[in-house]
Nucleic acid binder design. Sequence first.
DNA 1: CTCCAACCTGGAGTGCGCTCCAGGTCAAGG
DNA 2: CCTTGACCTGGAGCGCACTCCAGGTTGGAG
Lengths: 128, 128
Amino acid sequence: MTGYAPAEAARRSGFSLDTLRYYEKIGLLADVNRTAGGQRVFTDDDLSWLVLFRCLRDTGMPIAQMCRYAALAREGEHTVDERRELLQRHAAQVEEQMRLLQRQYDHLREKIRFYERLPGPTPPDDDR
Amino acid sequence: MTGYAPAEAARRSGFSLDTLRYYEKIGLLADVNRTAGGQRVFTDDDLSWLVLFRCLRDTGMPIAQMCRYAALAREGEHTVDERRELLQRHAAQVEEQMRLLQRQYDHLREKIRFYERLPGPTPPDDDR
DNA sequence: CTCCAACCTGGAGTGCGCTCCAGGTCAAGG
DNA sequence: CCTTGACCTGGAGCGCACTCCAGGTTGGAG
């Protein structure tokens, strides 16, 4: 039942206030409580949604897909299968992303090793 | 000495033809050879630059920084230190990126485990 | 020589995910 | 009360990295 002021919610979630408003505007975050005067009051539940959104975004899920997930969750129990599958598909993409990142990181490291061996008898520099 | 037509270069590099032209326009790719009539002819050297650009982009380097790197390389031998440092700083950022991705992937997996335990005596679903 | 698919240019348009702004309202401390 | 900093709304603007377009040119197959 604890309520958080917008600035506090922003601080805790790591999203900017503008981003929180934006997420509400596009329907990603729905039914945010308000004071009588119309100011937002975020709940712990809102906060845990934001934690999830951060996770999904950091792993590269497009906002449209997060909206889809959130809409399914709001629809109720009968969407759990679809929600699970959505997350599983995403997880598979993240795995692919991690493999690619690792591979390219290795290339980068190799490139750096090339530079680190330069000072000394300079080998033919391909300048790439 | 082998030369590649634009379409072939696109195919080999994985960049679109428009992107290759764009990279040239912004000065990322410089001095691309032309036929008498003005059509581009890509060399193996151009291709290896493109391979590097792909590596840097896949690891999240902004184009402006790639331009900087390319400009340094064009300037000659005396920029090797700066080039190495640029790549090293980038590699450090990639490491951070990989750690974050792994961490959020773990969260995601946990979330999925939550869904996988659902079918059975349904525990209190927090719907997050 | 003719044809047409591939290519050229400059510049406008796109999609994403915010971010900023103007002009007004709210609410807690003094 | 009064002040003032946090908050509100709708909508415009931005930065990035392309992507697309119109209108014209090139060059290799037949």
